[in-house]
Amino acid sequence: MSRQTARAGDPRKVNGELFTLTYGALVAQLLRDYEDDEEVNKQLEKMGYNIGVRLIEDFLARSNTSRCNDFRETSDIISRLGFKMYLGITPVISNWSPAGDEFSLLIENNPLSDFVELPEGHTALNYSNILCGVLKGALEMVQMDVDVWFVQDQLKGDNITEIRLKFIKRLDDAVPAGED
């Protein structure tokens, strides 16, 4: 029995690693398929978007949050609830634009890049670009049109990983065709 426990390890950690390793295998496959960093970034964002539009359902069900009053509240919930719940980290929110429509998420240890070292010649690759897609997709489902992009990445030698979010506009509730 003792060996069994030793094997499985901390379940939470191993589970996170499963996701990290799966994501790594995916990026490696995309790099082989497309051989172009920009194209891989685009595909990762697209896949993230598709995940985000589904993940928001799960998030709302679990977190039991209500509508945000402003973008500042949204930023707080993304970091303190969203990232915490799914990736176990709480990014620091900073660099607000004066108008209050743009902020940065600062991530110190990004679980997605846990076992990763970028090989040479991939300076344009945003390894964790899927996160941008997830954020965009999820926020779009709660009527927020946002732009999300990588500013800095520790994998490229920066001191911190920085993702920037810019609020563009509120989306109107789309009513399905044929209904009032």
């Binding site: 379940p11 939470r12 589970n15 996170g16 499963l18 996701f19 799966t22 994501y23 995916l26 398929d33 595909q43 697209k46 896949m47 598709n50 995940i51 589904r54 993940l55 799960d58 679990r62 719940m85 799914y86 990736l87 176990g88």
Partner: peptide, 22 residues
């Protein structure tokens, strides 16, 4: 645990992506 669903969604999307692109 909340992060199980991430793995599931990621797998779904990997299948979907490869399906779309082939």
């Amino acid at each position: 645990m909340a992060d199980e669903i991430l793995f599931e969604l990621l797998h779904m999307e990997i299948v979907g992506h490869l399906q779309r692109s082939s």
